[in-house]
């Protein structure tokens, strides 16, 4: 990372700091201020979109730790979210637990299920591991359907609105703030995790697991730890999703979403916290645009049926992944760094 001239790092701590200049601190504070005052001046629609983005950011950050840092590709992330979502839903709806107690339990439960399905990861990787996580997705959903008495089966489960400190979170703005606080904490934790011993071990495993083992990284425990942390994130996101809609249903965690989370990571840039956030924002906006584009296209060109317009969203979704894989495999964050560098060096950069 290039710094403006006149900034000197005199200690290791300074060199490792995430924010190294006053300017960066100011930008962060402005960003946070804008973020947390959004409910004051945004419409319901923007609040919904932003809340969904926040929830996806939490989930994708988890996937980034698992896939982006540790190299263990998971195509079952929505399944792990379902574990968290349903644990939280069952605790609050069936047992009457408060939301603040159910949320950590949801994360923990998803983490433990993640460890379970991560167990084969010691022996296998690449395509084989992907298949194990795909299987996890389908098995989890099937199990939810089987325990119909607790989960509501195919009927879904109505979940009470979350209550914190005697205050029922009912408005979109309040829920947005809740999600954003958790998302910020999640980002902070994810950003710092990489700079610890654990994070460096993850990266070593990603780059070459055999070499990492030779260097003394315990593969089993670190891989399982990555699964645990990644799935805790997923569980928390699942819980937030379920409480946001006050309803839990297996159709809210389809296999397509698992793919889409991985796509967000690819579009944003693997192995980068900022990239994960970029990816979520871009693809969520695309999703939203596609939902709006359907009726708009059908209205503009009456010759094409509404269904044809709706099917374009499927095509667009695929096309975005194709385009990024071919032309921008390192993700938006890479492009972002290039653009930043361009302006920093201007007029010497041409």
């Amino acid at each position: 990372m290039s710094l403006p001239s006149g900034i000197f790092q005199e200690s290791y701590g300074q060199d490792m700091a995430i924010l190294r200049t006053k300017q960066q601190w100011i930008w962060l504070l402005i960003f946070l201020a804008v973020l947390f005052t959004m409910p004051l001046y945004s419409s319901d629609k923007i609040m919904t979109l932003a809340t969904m983005m926040g929830i996806s950011v939490i989930s994708v950050l988890g996937l980034n730790i698992l896939t982006g840092y540790c190299g263990q590709i998971s195509l079952g992330h929505a399944g792990f979210m379902a574990v968290g979502g349903y644990v939280s839903a069952m605790l609050t709806a069936n047992l009457g637990w408060p939301f603040w107690a159910a949320l950590p339990c949801a994360g923990l439960a998803a983490g433990l299920v993640g460890i379970l399905f991560g167990l084969p990861s010691l022996k296998i990787k690449g395509f084989y591991l992907i298949m194990a996580t795909v299987a996890a997705q389908f098995i989890v959903i099937w199990l939810i359907l089987q325990f119909r008495g607790f989960t509501g089966g195919t009927d879904g489960l109505a979940v009470p609105r979350p209550e914190l400190f005697g205050y029922v979170i009912k408005t979109k703005g309040a829920y947005f703030l809740l999600v954003m606080i958790i998302a910020c904490l999640a980002t902070f934790f994810a950003k710092n995790l990489v700079r610890t011993r654990v994070g460096r071990a993850f990266i070593a495993i990603r780059d070459n697991d055999l070499a990492a083992e030779v260097m003394g990284v315990n593969l089993l425990s670190y891989k399982l730890l990555a699964f645990f942390i990644g799935c805790v994130y997923a569980g928390v996101a699942g819980s937030l999703l379920v409480h946001y809609f006050a309803f839990a249903d297996i159709n809210m965690f389809p296999f397509g979403d698992s793919v889409w989370y991985l796509a967000m990571l690819i579009v944003g840039g693997m192995g980068s916290t900022t990239g994960a956030i970029f990816g979520v924002i871009t693809l969520k906006l695309l999703d939203e645009a596609m939902i709006l584009a359907g009726p708009a296209l059908a209205a503009a060109f009456p010759a094409i049926a509404a269904q044809a317009a709706a099917s374009l969203s499927l095509i667009m979704r695929g096309l975005v992944i194709v385009i990024f894989l071919i032309f921008e495999p390192r993700g938006l964050v890479h492009r972002w760094e290039l653009i930043k560098a361009y302006f920093k060096r201007w007029p010497f950069s041409v």
Binding site: A263, R317, L319, I321, V322
Partner: peptide, 9 residues
């Protein structure tokens, strides 16, 4: 991911 995207398309 490419083949999954192909499938979606």
């Amino acid at each position: 991911m490419m083949t999954i995207a192909l499938g979606t398309i």
